[in-house]
Design a protein around this nucleic acid. Structure first.
Lengths: 117, 117
DNA sequence: CCTCATAGGTAGCATCACAAAGTATTGTGA
DNA sequence: TCACAATACTTTGTGATGCTACCTATGAGG
């Protein structure tokens, strides 16, 4: 799945929403979040660790998620879980995304504009 | 039209696409572009001039649009028009948007994720 | 041994939308 | 006539943040 060259920064402002959405279904560690995004988007969202880990730290600082270290098969990993605030934020951000994507799609699919004055 | 508080930067990376789309229907000057975006998105995209004008300059430097000064009713305005390169870029960027928005929507609407390992 | 997959991390950079302020002219209402 | 809104464009500075590049460490498989 080659996937179009999705220029960096398209995510800007939407990354947090995606991370919260992935965690909504239960605790996940960072590496698993990255895989969930990749598979959940059919390969379109393949994020580098340098994007995801700092973002998870940000969300934790913001109180939207909490983390806990665990050791599985000799590997330390940090499991992140949505807080109540995170769940609420996710709800709002979903609404923002709906509005935003609807607006952009409307503009992009409008047939040749009514020529203005 | 209250519209949700659309945090800044959500547009990041998508603004150029929107501007090209507006110009696809014929030449427009900056102020008219702003209004077209506002009405075309039912009020959701209400961009400040400090966002739009510099973006138009960028697009012109990039060769995707050209401009011409004109005077209408005593007011100078700069009319922007898509170039062939701009038209081509718009096509690609529409495809990128489709892919991006599909991917994000997929992640956001997926019901509670298959819990990973 | 060596490499790959798993798992986490950081520093620094570049981009760019935005806020804020400014300039001018025309039109309108009190 | 005087103020103000609307039209039209510009520029400076800043902040947020995703990405590149790099680093550490363990376990499994050849």
């Amino acid at each position: 799945m080659p996937v179009l060259p999705m220029r960096p920064d398209l995510l800007k402002g939407h990354l947090d929403t995606l991370l919260l959405a992935v965690l909504e279904g239960g605790a996940q560690h960072g590496y698993a979040v990255i895989e969930a995004l990749r598979t959940g988007s059919a390969g379109a969202l393949d994020l580098p660790t340098g994007t995801v880990y700092p973002a998870l730290h940000r969300l934790e600082r913001a109180g939207l998620i909490t983390s806990e270290w665990e050791t599985v098969r000799g590997r330390r990993r940090r499991a992140y879980r949505l807080t109540a605030a995170g769940q609420a934020a996710l709800g709002e951000q979903r609404a923002v995304w709906d509005q935003f994507s609807t607006a952009v799609t409307a503009v992009l699919t409008r047939q040749p504009w009514p020529a203005a004055t």
